[in-house]
Amino acid sequence: MRVLAALSGGVDSAVAAARAVEAGHDVVGVHMALSRNRAQMRTGSRGCCSIEDAGDARRAADVLGIPYYVWDLSERFEDTVIADFLSEYEAGRTPNPCVRCNEHIKFDALLDKALALGFDAVCTGHYARAGVDGDGFPLLRRSADLAKDQSYVLAVMGPERLARAMFPLGDVPSKEQVRAEAAARGLSVSAKPDSYDICFVADGNTQGFLRDRLGSRPGQIVDADGTVLGEHDGAYGFTVGQRKGLGIDRPAADGRPRYVLSIEPVSNRVVVGSAEDLSVGAVIGESAVWFVPAPTQWTDCLLQVRAHGAAVPVRARALPEGGLRIEVSDDRLRGVAPGQSAVLYQGDRVLGQATVAATEPLSPRPDSAAVEVR
């Protein structure tokens, strides 16, 4: 196959490309330039897609003996990922920019351009496993290294784009093995630190980034009864479940910590309350994508709402017009914010994904029959 290998400049993508070459594919390397500021440099292990990373990607391609190109996708990145990030926070929601990057950049803009140029697939260094199940549906599974698993942020791509994706690191048991393999192949990035935080917020100060872009918007911090407890400089600087940095100068009457329960963009208020008030009984999703036939009956499965969060038992069913309803029977799910990605699993298999539109508080519900997807 003709394979376009996305080379970020890190060790994972370099080893993934090396494995694609070793498998006999005709591989071309490409680095996505996502920053409009071409002078931006990486700081420690923060960020990605800088000039330094482009140089590391080029050296990896040279070692592998494959052609190498840099594609400027900065305008698309600014207009989709960053614009979505800002508008979602402005609307009182909590987006995951890595999910949106996979949706709009890596498996949309990059993949579409690759297909237009005659490539059969895009290869990345993500930790996940792709395949086909017994019924012919594209199959997305967790990686062998659960600590590095990235199926959560990949679920948004959907089955059609998954069929054009390759994840050569999905079966690797540990990141240490990837680094050892890179060193053995003579790749200079073998000891390069992992990137973390939000790539376009290189200093890690998300609130500062939002303040610079959205400006000062003073408002009130209130409890569930509407009592004013304090003031804020921008509701966009808070997220559901947040405990620290609330700016409240007096404790709750019972002395217990307060948490952000909701953000009201119209009134510009932040509502706080107790930890128990964060318990979620139901999640309503929108823009659902499925890797199985959309289940119209209640289906027992697991729900994950954060990239590195634990999955909790739930039941779920598809709703009309791309909707999804997920119900929880106990208080193990807390602090779910609109805008987060809700990913459903059975075992290590991804069933589907949706964006959280709303939640409902935990309350008793009658049991009803549920089915298992096979």
Rank of each mutant, 00 (worst) to 15 (best):
C98E: 09
W71S: 01
V30E: 04
E90K: 10
E52Y: 01
R36L: 14
D72P: 07
S50W: 06
D56C: 06
E75R: 15
N37Y: 06
V81L: 07
G29L: 03
E90R: 11
D62H: 13
G44P: 00
T94W: 12
L34D: 05
Y89D: 11
R36M: 15
R42P: 00
S74L: 12
D62Y: 02
Y69T: 05
S87E: 15
Y89T: 06
G65F: 10
Y68G: 02
G44W: 01
V27E: 10
D79W: 06
A91L: 01
C98G: 10
L73M: 15
V28T: 15
L86T: 09
V81F: 06
T43M: 00
D72H: 11
G92Q: 05
A54N: 08
R59W: 00
E88D: 13
L86I: 15
S45E: 13
C98F: 00
A33N: 02
A54Y: 02
R76W: 11
S87Y: 09
M32I: 11
A61C: 12
V70Q: 02
G65L: 14
V30K: 03
D62N: 11
E52N: 06
Y69V: 05
T80R: 05
M32H: 09
D62G: 08
V70Y: 04
V63M: 00
R76V: 15
Y69G: 01
R76L: 14
C98T: 14
D84H: 00
D72M: 12
I82L: 12
P67A: 13
G44R: 11
A91K: 03
S35K: 04
E90M: 07
A91M: 03
R36W: 13
E75K: 10
D72S: 12
Y68A: 02
D79L: 05
G65R: 14
R42C: 02
A83S: 14
P95C: 08
T43H: 03
R46Y: 08
F85K: 05
W71Q: 04
I51N: 04
M41K: 09
W71F: 01
S74M: 12
A60L: 12
D72R: 09
L86C: 15
M32Y: 01
Y69K: 00
T80G: 09
D84S: 00
S74C: 13
E90P: 04
R59M: 03
S35R: 04
G29M: 08
V63Q: 08
D53A: 05
G44D: 11
